[in-house]
C-alpha cells in the first residue's frame, strides 16, 4: 500500500474547449479539490484528438490519458465527440498488443456546468491509475 501511495502517476488530459475545459475552470473557481496528477491540454474539440496523440503520450511514459468532451448530442461542432468515442473504442482494442491495459485510456463527457463531475472524475481516474501502477512501457524502456 505504501508504495502505491508513493506513486504519483502522470496523466495527460485532452479537454475540449467548450465543455470539459470550462468544467475545469468551474471546479477551480468553486475550489473543488482533486489530485494534481492530470496535465490538461485544451483542444478545440474532443474529435480533434488523434489516437496518435494518445499513443504518443503513452509511449512517452504517461501513466494514463483522459479525453474529456461535450455530452452526447451537445458537441459544439455537432458530432466531434461521437467521432472521439469511436476512435478511442478502436484505439483501446490495440492497446493490449502494446502490453498496455485499456483502462489507462478514459473517455468522459463533462459539460461546462459540471465542475463537481470534473473533480470527481479526476479523483476516480487518479485512484484507478494508481491502482494499475506505473505505465509498463516506462518500466521496460528504463531497463
Amino acid at each position: 500500500m505504501a508504495e502505491e501511495d508513493q506513486f504519483e502517476p502522470v496523466i495527460v488530459g485532452f479537454f475540449c474547449n467548450w465543455c470539459t475545459a470550462a468544467a475545469a475552470d468551474l471546479a477551480g473557481t468553486s475550489r473543488m479539490q482533486y489530485p494534481p496528477n492530470v496535465r490538461p491540454i485544451r483542444v478545440m474539440c474532443s474529435g480533434s484528438v488523434d489516437p496518435v496523440y494518445v499513443l504518443r503520450a503513452l509511449l512517452g511514459g504517461a501513466d494514463g490519458v483522459i479525453i474529456g468532451g461535450c455530452p452526447p448530442g451537445d458537441c459544439h461542432y455537432v458530432s466531434g465527440n461521437y467521432r472521439a468515442r469511436r476512435r478511442m473504442a478502436i484505439l483501446k482494442t490495440i492497446l493490449a498488443t502494446l502490453g498496455l491495459e485499456e483502462e489507462r485510456v478514459w473517455v468522459r463527457w463533462i459539460s461546462a456546468a459540471e465542475g463537481a463531475k470534473f473533480s470527481r472524475t479526476m479523483n476516480e481516474l487518479t485512484q484507478a491509475i494508481k491502482k494499475l501502477g506505473p505505465n509498463p512501457m516506462k518500466r521496460d524502456w528504463s531497463i
Binding site: E8, A27, G28, R31, P40
Partner: peptide, 22 residues
Amino acid sequence: REHIAWVHGDNPKVATEKAKSL
C-alpha cells in the same frame, strides 16, 4: 490559480510539479 492552486491545496509538492509541466 483555478487549475492548480485552488484545487490542489493539500498537495503543494505535486502541484508545483504540475505547474512546471504546464
